[in-house]
């Protein structure tokens, strides 16, 4: 984790503003999750939840997206990320399917359902064999992926919100 950040607020606490309000805190964590927020006077920034067991992948996405003014939420595991998604309502959720610990594919379904109800765009990284077809707006990017196209995809999805 990068130094110079403050951690303290649990992301599952109810005092986090709803996704349509302006954030007021400096950062938050939830287990392995972290949120970088904007100061009170800054207009609300877009937020991206990254669910990925790889520290490196999260670091790359965090570094690049933060430079573009995006707030980042992070989780290492699928279940952990799902809670953050439901509590923090990120604009875009990026899920590496290896975060699915039991490998049953239930993660795909759970994220599809949650992203639909929480109005978050979903980007899945990896191979999906049984993705639900009734949802739209979700994207699947095979691994190994290039970061340039992935970042552009995330930016396009952020623009829709």
């Amino acid at each position: 984790m990068a130094e110079g950040r403050t951690f303290g607020q649990r992301a599952d606490q109810d005092d986090w503003p709803s996704r349509r309000r302006f954030p007021t805190f400096s950062s938050a964590t939830h287990g392995g999750a972290r949120l970088t927020q904007l100061s009170p006077e800054t207009p609300r920034s877009r937020s991206v939840l990254i669910v990925d067991p790889s520290d490196e992948s999260r670091e790359v996405l965090r570094t690049v997206l933060e430079r573009r003014g995006v707030s980042i939420l992070e989780a290492r595991r699928g279940a952990e990320g799902l809670k953050i998604l439901q509590n923090q309502h990120p604009d875009v959720t990026v899920v590496d399917l290896e975060a699915d610990q039991d490998g049953s594919g239930s993660l795909v379904i759970a994220y599809h359902n949650a992203s639909a109800s929480e109005e978050t765009s979903l980007v899945m990284l990896g191979r999906v064999s049984a993705a639900p077809t009734s949802r739209d707006g979700s994207q699947v990017i095979s691994k190994p992926y290039h970061y340039g196209p992935l970042i552009r995809t995330i930016e396009q999805l952020l623009e829709r919100h």
Partner: peptide, 21 residues
């Protein structure tokens, strides 16, 4: 190998970003 390749791509992308900026 795919995971390692992913890591190298990520690192390379950051280097590129850093050089650009």
């Amino acid at each position: 190998v795919k995971n390692i390749l992913q890591g190298i791509r990520g690192g390379s992308y950051l280097i590129e970003e850093g050089l650009k900026g």
